[in-house]
Write a protein that binds this DNA or RNA. Structure first.
Lengths: 346, 346
DNA sequence: GCCCCGGGATAGAGCGCTCTCCCCGGCCGT
DNA sequence: ACGGCCGGGGAGAGCGCTCTATCCCGGGGC
């Protein structure tokens, strides 16, 4: 920046006190004479002093930064590195995560360091960065089941909080949604609406959340007198939703209700139904999951199960902060309640 | 992390050499005897050494981090801080920017630090962070014209590169698209297709890019014998696209071609046209701009002007890197060429 | 009047790294 | 044979901050 940034020393000289006193004023620690405090404050003002982050980090062993890691399983080998990032952020879900995380971090003047780990190579890169102290801890959002990163982080002793329960148990904190509960809301709504031939499009069944949503849906359907629910597995994408619905429709042409495990697939379901001449919601009612932005832009707008992603992300950051500060040492899980949002599709 | 991370000193002791030598091996500087090099490398392996970033930053005065700042004009006063972040990332455009930036940074083991500046308060916060050396420079994506941040950064002497030419001139590098050129492609395509009653939905006219796209479109239309083009201003959102098209349709019911200044608005245009009983592309041809992910998911898929966002973002990072390293000192602009992508909508 | 006490300030020792300066020894030129 | 040069290595001075140990000094207890 300018030729030579002022240091604590400079401020101390101007204020006529010692470095230590200035430091105490800045960090608001121990009793400092109010008069001197004022003098120091003015000196800071006058010199335009800004504390050097690196120097502070060196002694405090804190970087005031957390890594926000988007982690894939490396299932798309030929894929360009960056394509992963683009694909990830194409999903409005991540925007909401970022939003929640930043909401917590910013008032504490911390920032998220964005990292992507979608291959063995990038994973060890991320691990190395963390061990170098680039960040005080990690917030991990996995896009796939069987993501090896959480275990690696746990082994390395990096304070970590996950978004969603990992499919293989790891001694790490996480936040998650009561997925079964959400599926129950969807099932009850469809049932109350009078639907009788109900099918569901699940997420990838390797993902715990998909399993839970399916299980919750089936339970409630069974309790409502529907022991059998046709199922098709999707991949959380629009295309996979269309494909899954296409299959279901072929076998069950009289379907009148669909529960899709996320909004993107619900959109695909709607599109396919329209292409096949079914009106939504008049012929077939469709319920999505997430309440993401596509739920609103979709025609018709989706009735969906809201996942409070921003709050969950903020809680994730708060949890990590506690771990980093050492206030909390044991892994903890925080489960959030979903909510049914009524729109036009069901 | 673990109880006590190994330091250079530890490695040096194990290898039986001095700190300086180990440092040289790690940074690959000056000639070191290959034999000793090997010994040091093994010592690093054995101790599990990872250089401390803070210590290194302190002396090199480099953080190996760049700030990726999304900057708004603070036009939505009542808005929650985080809502801004969510809104921003709802636009697939930013995902592509992140992708491009990360593509450049990662091979150099640098990371983007995510920051948002949408109010006077957060702007000065960002500025303070940068002055503290949290990042070596700033990559700025403004969502609004009249964004005061670029000027502030320039004044503070922070190495900065902007995405898109600022509406008020600032001594800062930027990357941008040849917007007029892109609009020309759209106009020519519509004309070649045989459209005769063509209208356009522009972006917010305070934004230079919107102006340029409009100007380029008008020029080409004029050159093609269409001196007058009905115009409606939108806000780059789906809703604003629908609203703008609604107005245009009322005044020009016989419209047969539309150029929308981005894909989101083009999607809105398509939706409105369908609601009003017009078929796309049979009754009305629609051309978008950006080639964002909605261009693909939209029904029908959009013919659009591709903006090579990832490349532009990568170039932005590269430019910043040069500024930071001092290789380049003068502000520079890099203009990229657009490309017409043909799909179903026109 | 002396001693002890404690609030308020300072001195100075690092934190872990880089980098400049210096030293050593072998090889060349004259 | 000797001095200079140069490749390869070491010693040590910081970078700017925090924090512990220490000091100073005024006041209260006996």
């Amino acid at each position: 920046m300018s030729r030579q940034a002022p240091t604590l020393e400079d401020v101390a000289r101007v204020a006529g006190v010692s470095r230590a006193t200035v430091s105490r004023v800045i960090n608001g620690v121990r009793n400092v004479d109010p008069g001197i405090q004022e003098v120091v404050r003015q000196a800071i003002e006058r010199t335009g002093y800004a504390p050097n982050r690196a120097a502070r980090s060196l002694v405090t062993r804190r970087s005031q930064t957390v890594a926000l890691i988007v982690s894939g399983a490396g299932d798309t080998p030929g894929e360009e590195q960056n394509a992963f990032a683009a694909r990830v952020f194409a999903d409005p879900f991540f925007g909401r995560v970022v939003s929640g995380v930043v909401g917590y971090l910013r008032p504490r003047s911390m920032h998220p360091l964005l990292m992507f780990a979608e291959s063995a190579e990038t994973r060890s890169q991320v691990l190395a960065d963390l061990r170098q102290g680039s960040a005080d801890g990690a917030l991990v959002v996995s896009t796939h089941a069987d993501d090896p990163l959480p275990a690696l982080l746990a082994d390395a002793g990096v304070p970590t909080v996950l978004f969603a329960r990992p499919s293989r148990p790891v001694r790490l904190s996480y936040v998650d949604l009561a997925h079964r509960e959400g599926a129950r809301l969807a099932a009850e709504h469809l049932l109350n609406r009078g639907c009788r031939r109900i099918v569901t499009v699940t997420g990838p069944l390797g993902v715990a959340a998909s399993q839970d949503r399916l299980a919750g849906f089936r339970d409630t359907m069974a309790r409502g007198g529907h022991p059998y629910v046709p199922v098709a597995e999707g991949g959380f994408t629009l295309d996979s939703g269309m494909a899954a619905m296409s299959g279901l429709l072929a076998e069950h042409p009289d379907v009148d209700g669909v529960f899709a495990a996320n909004d993107l697939m619900a959109q695909g379901v709607c599109q396919l139904l329209r292409e096949r001449g079914r009106a939504v919601p008049d012929d077939v009612a469709v319920v999505g999951f997430d309440d993401s932005s596509v739920a609103v832009t979709c025609r018709p707008p989706l009735t969906t199960v809201r996942q409070p992603v921003e709050e969950m992300a903020a809680a994730m950051a708060a949890l990590l902060d506690e771990h980093v500060r050492g206030v909390r040492t044991e892994p903890t899980s925080l489960i959030f309640d979903p909510e049914l949002v009524l729109r036009a599709s069901a």
